[in-house]
Design a protein around this nucleic acid. Structure first.
Length: 820
DNA sequence: CTCCTGGAAAGATGA
DNA sequence: CGTCATCTTTCCAGG
């Protein structure tokens, strides 16, 4: 096991690093906490608000643009030492591509100087490259492939042009909606679609309503640009099999050792290539960058247009909103604070070549921005508050925690559903003057840093059962659904038009710059954003996200989850019958009791016998095994339910009383119940009793459980060393978590102290002594969890059911409990 | 006939 | 290098 654990931990690290955490501490200043997107408190005076002023025609000065862009698009961008990049020689390939695009698109970015380009942008967004997926649904098929596989796209760039043109045509011809949206798009169009959307169809997105359109301008480009790069890159190496192998063709090593992927750039580092960095860096960067985000709500002005019927408006290209000066302070800070989001250094290192690519990117990018249009929605990875000034975007009905995503090779698997059987419901309160558009995209389940998910894209579901109108668009390579919130509907919308598309891991991972690992990265959150026009012409952006949703097919044996059990103690002789109630528990399951020493080592372990005849449905009855070790007093042990090697429930605390003890004693353990405070470090037993936990009278063992022991809300923490799975996850998947950086960010009132160094900026605060632990967070979730638990105020939400293992397994590993 | 689904076989990955 | 346990992705079939 240990071995296994280790492995997992490693994986995790990778994931985390890539995903979420930001490596560097550089951005401590970040104001916003990405992760807590949901909880930012705008009220806080300290929060900066970005105003978006529209500058209609004016093209922003390059500088400004850069800045603005950065702000908007990506925090990181600001600082991004584009310079470095600049210096790097551009890559021919790239150039070509860009040129092509630019030409095609008609956007040239002459206006932009490369210098101004920021890599960061790219970084921020998952790389476009990666993004391919973004396309999402297009069809379900392949957009990614097409796009993603650079090959497809880039490889033939000749063709590409053609495509672009086509796209352009389409764009022109069709209302925005069509091209993108429909699933049918399929095919090769992906690139085109993106293209269109971004460039061609600004309008496609409803302008008025949706600010987001801008996406394009934004970072996306850059990122995606990366696509270009990638494509190029990929292409070059033609070695790569077709972009989409039937099977994941290349097997991808998690380690990112993937030759292909990196071929161009050696660095594997999370943020390998500049371009590449996308995700990883993104994450990181974003994180850092987010500072801007820190702002909380973003106010973008310039949407004069809001009034305008979206359809009519052309937002076009420009969407990228530039942040207007107002941001100055904010931006400035950001810049200063965030020297390089992307960690240019890294990028620069390995990637000269890459850099070039990136540079190239700008072209598109620029093309979009300059146009002067206005506003663009903030980058998708920016944290935004869910409420501000009386306005609140709330997910009134949460989606089920499980939704099997469909592959491009499959048909749709339907829209997200609510646990109740209906569909998720989102409502904007505090505003009903006019229709507003809401954006929906699939984000990561990483609470620490909410950002678009690389391996999943939202997919527009159509059909007679769908009552909510919406249309697809692509922002920063991420597919986004735009759904109107109408006053007549009480500014709420039933999300019955959104499904989830799974992109092949191989497709995404091969993208350059992609740092995330797809394997076991199967949880997502649905993110909702809305742009609310303010009286002063500014636009306030609010965001909220759903709880984590497991998207992989459920296997026969799901992760078992113990809801309650009784009794929670018995004498050392064992033999008592214990009822365990929970989900995914059957007579096929195994119940193992064990005791761990202070060092986390298993000192005793024994499997309990299941009594099938007394078990039923969601509960099983087991015979408590005898505790064979010497005991002079009560001994706290743990037990877990297992459905297989990797499917174990969280460990539950159980107490063996001395035989001499009077039976009937039950200890209420904080440990067991409130457990949060329990940490492996401390010897459980000692702490337990010493703490004065009180023994409570417990039902006689034989009695049917009058009262079941409920797992601690926060699942009890198990010893770090303990089984891999047993640890409750400290990782906050839930929104409730406080943004790690929140503290930093602003005076937001978070009970949890910020952790500067925490990579991901986990929302968890750790006591000083534990600081190291915090560091560990990303890497060793479990341990962290433990440590965290010790902390006074953790907001971490645990999902008991799920994962014991957040840490080890990784977020992904955990299987959500649908409950259904 | 298309869209949804649930299941599962075939492959891919890692341990 | 082989084996095993998992995961991922592609197919099937029924409603």
């Amino acid at each position: 096991m240990s071995t296994a654990n280790c492995a997992e931990e490693l994986d995790f690290r990778l994931i985390f690093e890539e995903d979420g955490r930001q490596p560097t501490g550089r951005c401590l200043d970040v104001r916003a906490n990405p992760s807590s997107t949901q909880n930012l408190d705008l009220q806080d005076p300290n929060l900066n608000i970005y105003h978006h002023h529209v500058t209609p025609q004016s093209q922003q000065q390059p500088q400004l643009q850069g800045t603005q862009y950065g702000a908007q698009g990506n925090p990181r961008a600001f600082d991004c030492p584009s310079i470095q990049i600049t210096s790097i020689a551009p890559n021919n390939h790239i150039d070509q591509c860009q040129d092509v695009q630019g030409a095609e698109g008609g956007y040239s970015d002459a206006s932009w100087s490369r210098d101004q380009l920021y890599l960061p942008v790219d970084v921020c967004y998952r790389d476009q490259t990666l993004c391919p997926s973004p396309c999402s649904s297009l069809s379900s098929r392949s957009w990614m492939s097409d796009l993603s596989s650079c090959e497809s796209f880039s490889c033939t760039y000749d063709d590409v042009e053609g495509e672009l043109q086509d796209a352009a045509r389409l764009a022109l011809g069709s209302p925005h909606g069509s091209p993108l949206g429909s699933p049918g798009c399929g095919g090769g169009a992906f690139g085109v679609e993106l293209w269109q959307q971004k460039y061609q169809h600004p309008m496609a997105f409803s302008p008025a309503l949706s600010p987001h359109q801008s996406p394009l301008g934004s970072p996306c480009h850059s990122p995606r640009t990366s696509v270009t790069e990638e494509s190029w890159l990929n292409r070059r190496p033609s070695s790569r099999p077709s972009s989409r192998p039937t099977s994941p063709y290349g097997k991808r090593r998690h380690a990112s050792s993937d030759p292909h992927a990196c071929s161009p750039s050696p660095h594997h580092s999370p943020s390998p290539t500049p371009g590449a960095s996308p995700r990883g860096s993104v994450t990181d960067d974003t994180w850092v960058g987010s500072p801007g985000a820190a702002l909380g709500a973003l106010l973008m002005s310039g949407y004069p247009e809001l009034d305008v019927p979206s359809k009519t408006r052309r937002t076009s290209g420009q969407q990228m909103g530039l942040l207007t000066g107002q941001t100055d302070s904010g931006l400035e800070e950001l810049r200063t604070t965030i020297p390089f989001q992307d960690s240019p250094g890294e990028e620069s290192h390995d990637q000269d070549g890459l850099a070039e690519l990136f540079l190239q990117v700008p072209s598109h990018f620029s093309s979009g921005l300059p146009k002067g249009h206005v506003s663009s929605p903030p980058p998708l990875d920016w944290p935004l508050p869910n409420q501000f000034n009386g306005l609140e975007l709330k997910l009134e009905v949460q989606p089920k925690s499980y939704h099997r995503a469909h592959y491009e090779t499959e048909g749709s698997r339907g829209s997200l559903k609510a646990a109740s059987g209906g569909h998720p419901l989102v409502k904007l309160s505090g505003f009903s003057e006019q229709p507003v558009s809401m954006l929906l995209f699939i984000g990561t389940a990483d609470d620490r840093y909410l950002r678009p998910h690389s391996f999943y894209q939202v997919h527009r579901v159509t059909g007679k059962t769908v009552t909510t109108s919406c249309h697809e668009q692509v922002q920063s390579n991420t597919k986004v659904l735009e759904i109107p919130l109408l006053p007549e509907n009480d500014m709420s919308a039933s999300i019955d038009c959104a499904g989830i598309l799974k992109l092949r891991n191989a497709d995404i991972e091969l993208k350059k710059g992609e740092t995330d690992i797809g394997r076991k990265n199967t949880r997502v959150r649905v993110v909702f954003r809305v742009a609310v026009p303010q009286a002063d012409g500014q636009i306030l952006w609010l965001q909220t996200a759903s709880g984590p949703i497991e998207c992989s097919q459920r296997s026969g044996q799901e992760l078992p989850h113990v809801d309650s059990f009784s009794p929670s103690c018995c004498c050392g002789d064992g033999g008592d019958e214990m009822v365990i109630i929970g989900s995914n528990i059957s007579t096929q399951s195994k119940v193992v009791f064990l005791e761990k020493g202070p060092d986390g080592k298993t000192m005793w372990e024994m499997e309990a016998r299941i009594l099938p005849e007394k078990s039923s449905g969601s509960s099983i009855v087991v015979q408590v095994p005898p505790y064979i070790r010497k005991q002079s007093g009560p001994v706290q042990v743990q037990f877990y339910v297992s459905n297989g090697k990797r499917r174990r429930s969280l460990t539950q605390n159980f107490t063996f009383l001395p035989n001499s003890h009077q039976r009937g004693w039950e200890v209420l353990g904080r440990i067991s119940h409130s457990a949060p405070g329990f940490s492996a470090q401390a010897s459980p037993d000692l702490s337990y009793y010493s703490s004065g936990e009180l023994p409570v009278h417990c039902d006689p063992p034989q009695n049917p459980p009058p009262r079941l022991h409920h797992p601690p809300q926060p699942p009890p923490v198990t010893l770090p060393t303990a089984l891999n799975y047993s640890q409750p996850s400290s990782m906050p998947l839930q929104p409730p978590l406080i943004p790690p950086r929140a503290a930093l960010v602003s005076p937001l009132a978070y009970s949890v102290p910020p952790q500067p160094d925490s990579q991901g900026g986990a929302g968890i605060s750790v006591s000083p002594s534990l600081s190291r632990a915090s560091f560990v967070t990303s890497v060793e979730p479990q341990k962290e969890a433990v440590l965290l638990n010790t902390v006074p105020v953790l907001n971490i939400k645990q999902e008991p059911e799920e994962q014991p293992t957040l840490g080890c397994l990784g977020l992904q590993e955990i299987t959500l409990d649908d409950g259904e």
